[in-house]
Structure formats: C-alpha cells, structure tokens
Amino acid sequence: MNTLFPIFVKAENLHILIVGGGYVGLEKVTALLTNSPDARVTLVAPEIRGEIQELAQQHPKLQLILESYQPSHLTDKDLVIVGTNDKSVNRQVQADCKSQRILVNVADTPDLCDFYLSSVVKKGDLKIAISTNGKSPTFAKRFREVLEEILPDSLQETLDNLTAIRNQLKGDFVQKMEKLNEITKVLR
C-alpha cells in the first residue's frame, strides 16, 4: 500500500543540497531547476560534469563546490538529494541528515529515503506528480509521457477561466466551493 503523502514544495524558499556531480546529479539538478528555476541549490562533488557547470552559468542560484562531501555542507540546508556512485558516501550523507533532522533522498535506495522525487507532468500551471512508491521510476516516467501526450495544451486557458470565475464569486468558502464543483462537473 502506498502511504506516501504528496506535497508540492516552494523550492525557491529552500536551500537544497545535491551531493553528486555525475549523471544522477545532473538528472536531479535538471529536474529541480526545470520545475523551480529560482531554487537555491548547492551541488557538491569532487568531479562535476560539464553539463552541470553549464547549468550553473544559466542559473545564478546554483552554486557548485568542487570537493568531496563533508558534514559541514549540511549547514543551513533544508533538503538533501544524494546521487553518488559510492554507497558509503550515500549512507554517510543519509546518516548525517538524520542526525540533523534534514529530509533526504538517496537515489535508487528507497530504504534510505525520507521522500521520493516524482515524475512530473506540466501543462501551464497544472502539475501532476506521479509516484510508484519507489518501486519503478521507469514506469512513472513512461506514464508521464502518456499523460503529456493526451492532456491538451488548452488546459491553461481552462485554469485561467476558472480562476476568473472563482475571483468573481460571492459568498463564503462553502458557497464558492459548491459553485466551482458544479461548474467543473463536466470534467468527469
């Protein structure tokens, strides 16, 4: 049973640490900055791929530290994503995060994760996060591709229209919700 509680975080209000500068680090920093271009991200690794260095030139809030992970890198961090090819480093970062009560995701190691990164469908302001409870990120990716293909690009116009309607409604919260529920019944 999937007992995960889905949330969307305002990454631009957090300081996120990514440990690992290889392919997985590139994947994680790309996903993060694609969804939250103003996120404050520090990436630490003894070697950093050229593509990550290019991203840092485009994103001034992406700081690169070219050195091995140290517990001091956790200072003032709110969230940590780990993606090195060294399992002992991954376990050490996870243990350090636990001792400081910092939420951590260790790529490809569900047992060490406090949260999972989802596959995301984005159509304008609509975002749909897909999780397989850590069982198959590949399935989540494929399902995302299916949803991206079938969801119309005109969804943004629908969202904008519903926002305009909501802003014009009179009454208390319950009355507004009842009216919006009635209007959106056609989406069933």
Rank of each mutant, 00 (worst) to 15 (best):
N13Y: 08
N13E: 13
N13H: 10
N13A: 14
L14F: 05
L14V: 02
L14A: 10
L14Q: 12
H15K: 10
H15P: 05
H15R: 08
I16T: 13
I16M: 13
I16N: 15
I16A: 09
I16G: 09
I16V: 09
L17D: 05
L17W: 00
L17C: 04
I18S: 11
I18W: 00
I18C: 15
I18Y: 01
I18K: 04
G20K: 09
G21D: 12
G21W: 00
G21C: 10
G21Y: 01
G21H: 05
G21P: 15
G21M: 07
G21L: 10
G22I: 00
G22T: 03
G22H: 05
G22S: 07
G22C: 03
Y23G: 12
Y23Q: 13
Y23T: 13
Y23I: 15
Y23F: 09
V24F: 01
V24A: 08
V24C: 01
G25F: 02
G25M: 06
G25W: 01
G25C: 04
L26Q: 11
L26M: 15
L26C: 13
E27N: 14
E27P: 03
E27C: 14
E27G: 15
E27T: 14
K28S: 10
K28I: 01
K28D: 01
K28P: 01
K28T: 03
V29E: 04
V29F: 01
V29H: 04
T30F: 00
T30N: 12
T30M: 06
T30C: 05
A31F: 08
A31M: 08
A31E: 08
A31N: 05
A31Y: 05
L32I: 00
L32Q: 07
L32V: 01
L33S: 10
L33T: 10
T34I: 02
T34P: 07
N35P: 07
S36V: 13
S36C: 12
S36N: 08
S36K: 02
S36P: 03
S36T: 12
P37F: 02
P37I: 12
P37A: 11
P37D: 05
D38L: 13
D38Q: 09
D38N: 14
D38Y: 02
A39F: 02
R40C: 05
R40L: 00
V41M: 07
V41N: 14
V41Q: 07
V41K: 14
T42C: 15
T42D: 12
L43K: 03
L43H: 04
L43P: 08
L43R: 03
L43G: 11
L43A: 15
L43I: 03
V44E: 02
V44G: 13
A45N: 13
A45C: 12
A45I: 01
P46T: 05
P46E: 08
P46Y: 03
P46V: 07
P46R: 07
P46K: 09
E47C: 14
E47Q: 08
E47R: 12
E47H: 09
E47P: 04
E47L: 15
I48T: 11
I48Q: 04
I48K: 04
I48P: 10
